[in-house]
Design a protein around this nucleic acid. Structure first.
Length: 262
DNA sequence: ATGCCGCACCTTGTGCGA
């Protein structure tokens, strides 16, 4: 069975209900993982999604901030949710498909402005969150699993518009990039997007503050699709739907897609 | 160094995103 999957930081699922529906109608991924829903679970507008053929959802939510959801055409059973670093935030949900594949959907803390945990508590929380992800996957030894989400780190030089300028900017500092590599190593995760698209600049986020995001193209690749080693070869057809960043009242993130033959 | 934009809410300012 082949199934397609997308991950998208939606920046309010209620405000952008119609954009989610547009994506489901026009692109039709079998599974759509959303981050920054900014909604309690019982206020997520599920009816319209169900009407489009997506009756299954597992989610974690809270009022105003964070929030993750997995929408699916395929039956999905909840496999769990973790609260790494004990932040009390809705940043992770995992679900299992009937083919035995587990999907982990993450919204890693952004980390604030200054990359120094002595003066910026949020940066410390980001590092702690990643460390606990690493330790958890090291113990868990995930198999037949996909990890997606807004990891809020652009690891490679060609994942940012200017590597040297970004070295002290949160999301591309060496300490974050190294920790993300440790998470990857601990879970045996492969970067599906970069296996499919190994060369060249590739972004999934462009700031709202840039006047002309498309022409300036000062982006970062913050949104990721990973797979465990046992299924990494089944992945193909990765792409970033850059056009979605140009939709009316857009999210500042574009959806990232992959297909798995399993 | 700051502001730029845009979200939700304890809403006409504030905290957060990154």
């Amino acid at each position: 069975m082949a199934f397609s999957l997308a991950t998208w930081n939606i920046n309010s699922v209620r405000l952008r209900e119609e954009l989610v529906q547009k994506l489901l109608r026009e692109e039709g991924p079998d599974v759509l993982c959303l981050q920054e829903c900014k909604s309690p679970v019982d206020k997520i507008p599920t009816q319209g999604f169900a009407d489009l053929g997506y009756p299954y959802m597992v989610a974690r939510g809270q009022k105003g901030y964070n929030g993750v959801a997995i929408l699916s055409r395929l039956p999905i059973v909840e496999a769990g949710a973790e609260d790494f670093a004990n932040l009390g935030h809705a940043r992770h949900i995992a679900g299992r498909l009937e083919n035995g594949v587990t999907v982990h959907n993450f919204y890693v803390p952004a980390g604030g402005d200054k990359p120094d945990r002595e003066v910026n508590e949020k940066f410390g929380q980001k590092l702690d969150y990643l460390s606990e992800m690493r330790d958890w996957f090291k113990a868990e030894k995930p198999e037949k699993s996909i990890l997606v989400g807004d990891l809020n780190i652009a690891p490679r030089e060609d994942d940012v518009w200017d590597h040297k300028k970004m070295l002290k900017i949160v999301s591309h500092t060496p300490v974050e990039v190294d920790l993300l590599a440790e998470v990857q190593e601990a879970g045996g995760w492969a970067d599906v997007t970069r296996a499919d698209i190994p060369e060249g600049l590739l972004y999934s986020w462009w700031s709202y503050r840039a006047k002309d995001w498309d022409a300036a193209d000062k982006g970062r690749r913050l949104d990721h699709v990973w797979a465990t080693g046992d299924i990494r070869q089944a992945a193909h057809s990765s792409r970033v739907l850059r056009a979605a960043r140009g939709w009316e009242k857009p999210s500042d993130h574009a959806p990232v897609f992959a297909t798995f033959d399993l």
